[in-house]
Computed example of a mutant assay.
Amino acid sequence: MKKVTGIGGIFFKCKDPKATTEWYAKHLGLETNPYGATFEWYETNASEHKAQTQWTPFPETTQYFGKEDQAFMINYRVENLEHLYSQLQQEGVTILDKITSYDYGKFLHILDAEGNKVQLWEPID
C-alpha cells in the first residue's frame, strides 16, 4: 500500500501572514485566498483527476506546529488514513490526535523522528 502520495501543503511561520501573502501575490503572481494559495495539478499526465497543494503563511506565534522553534510544517497527502493510523500505532510512532474529518478530507498529526509535527491528509478530491 502506498502511504504518502505527495505533498498536500507547506505551512510556515512569518511575522505578518497577510503582508507575506500580499508580497507573494504581487511579486510572484500567486493567486491567493484567505488560506494562502492553492496550486492545482493532475495526478498523472493522462488523468482528469485534479489534485491540489496548499501554501499557507502562519503567524510566527502559532502553536499549531507544535514546538515553538518549528518554523514550518509539511502536510503529506496519504491514502487510507485509517489503515495508516493503525500501522503507525503498531510501529510506535507518536500520534498527537485522533483522525478528524472535514468536507475536504481527513487529517491526523504525528511527530517525526526529530519531534517535528507532521500533518497527514487523506483528501476528498
Rank of each mutant, 00 (worst) to 15 (best):
E79Q: 09
I95D: 09
T94C: 12
P34V: 04
P34Q: 10
E40Q: 11
G8F: 02
T53E: 01
F12C: 04
D16N: 15
T94S: 15
V118Q: 06
G105N: 07
A113E: 13
R77P: 00
L84A: 06
E122Y: 02
R77T: 02
Q63M: 09
L88P: 09
A37N: 05
K13W: 06
C14I: 00
V4T: 12
K13H: 02
D69T: 13
E68Y: 01
M73W: 03
H49W: 02
D16I: 05
S47E: 02
T38D: 09
V78H: 08
K26A: 13
T44C: 07
E82H: 15
E82S: 11
L111A: 07
L111Q: 14
L30W: 03
Y102S: 12
Q54E: 05
W121I: 03
Q63I: 07
D112C: 06
Q89R: 09
I74C: 05
P34C: 10
Y104P: 01
Q90D: 07
K3M: 13
E82F: 10
A51R: 04
E114Y: 11
L111D: 03
F65L: 07
K13D: 01
G6V: 00
D112F: 09
T38W: 08
T56C: 14
Y85T: 03
K26L: 11
T53C: 11
T53R: 05
H83Q: 15
P34Y: 07
W41F: 15
D125W: 01
T100K: 11
